[in-house]
Simulated assay, not measured.
Amino acid sequence: MKCLWKLQKEPDSTWASTVNLLYGSRDIPTLLADGRTSAAFRDILHYNDFFSSSICNPGLPQQLTWKWSTTGEYSSASSYRILADPGMRSPYHILLWKIKAPPKVRIFLWLILLDRILTQQNLARRNWPSITSCQCCSEGCMETSVHLFVHCTFAKQIWTQLQIRFNLPLLAFTTDLPAFWLQNRQTIGPSWDIIWATSSWAIWKERNSRLFASNRLTASRLVVEICATIEVWKKMA
């Protein structure tokens, strides 16, 4: 938000001058259409809709005002208050942070639900070096979040074995991660939360182990570790 504000309100700032030098424009619609913009800059421009709805007098730098502060000047605090408003939170916000799991795991779960973890697909989107194919199966599929945690044959082996071990009803293998968690939660109940959390965390660690250390566990061995972890996490305060 601050970068977009400076781009419009402070045309002589170092940031605005640099953007103008690189792309020949400070006009946001023009920059959005420019294929030369970097991935990081496109991420900033992605918030233009919220920015546009938060300002008055666009196109008039001297008269530009920010709706969410009494002074009319942009502040990070006012932006945060609006973005963190309970009315703008996701429907699973409260459920997620109550799962019995270490804080780092709950943050990880939040990231996978938002599709922000660095799968091969997300690395490719950022133009970072990537292998693209999933390392947990031999099907040559693009490693997306939903593939890795839901549809990968390795992941399905784990979910199937857990289904048998905990006597769960048939799982719904949905096309997105939030639905995979919440739809199965509806049929299984809150006990699904910790199973889903520990299994997703274990799959991610196994994926990294295969990718960076060339170590591999079988699905059965990983399920044993998942069950042990569930018992430990259940005892967390």
Rank of each mutant, 00 (worst) to 15 (best):
174 T>I: 04
187 T>L: 13
181 W>V: 09
193 D>Y: 00
194 I>N: 02
189 G>H: 04
166 F>N: 15
192 W>H: 03
205 K>I: 13
182 L>G: 08
189 G>Q: 07
186 Q>S: 15
173 F>C: 13
192 W>A: 06
207 R>N: 06
206 E>G: 09
201 W>D: 03
187 T>S: 12
194 I>D: 03
175 T>K: 14
167 N>Q: 15
203 I>W: 07
171 L>V: 01
199 S>L: 04
206 E>M: 05
205 K>R: 10
182 L>S: 07
196 W>H: 06
192 W>V: 03
176 D>C: 06
200 S>L: 02
195 I>C: 00
179 A>R: 11
190 P>Y: 10
188 I>W: 13
203 I>D: 05
206 E>L: 08
184 N>L: 04
208 N>G: 00
185 R>D: 08
186 Q>K: 12
204 W>F: 01
166 F>G: 12
189 G>T: 06
191 S>R: 15
177 L>S: 04
198 T>H: 01
208 N>E: 07
184 N>C: 01
173 F>M: 13
189 G>D: 08
174 T>P: 04
197 A>K: 00
210 R>F: 07
171 L>P: 03
175 T>P: 14
186 Q>M: 14
206 E>R: 03
206 E>Y: 12
205 K>H: 14
199 S>P: 08
182 L>V: 10
174 T>V: 03
209 S>T: 09
208 N>R: 04
175 T>A: 14
183 Q>G: 11
198 T>R: 02
173 F>L: 13
167 N>T: 15
179 A>W: 12
198 T>N: 05
187 T>V: 14
169 P>A: 05
191 S>K: 15
177 L>R: 02
181 W>S: 07
189 G>A: 01
211 L>D: 15
203 I>F: 07
199 S>T: 13
175 T>L: 13
203 I>Q: 11
208 N>P: 04
209 S>H: 10
209 S>E: 11
211 L>N: 14
171 L>E: 00
195 I>Q: 02
187 T>M: 15
188 I>N: 07
190 P>K: 09
171 L>Q: 01
205 K>P: 09
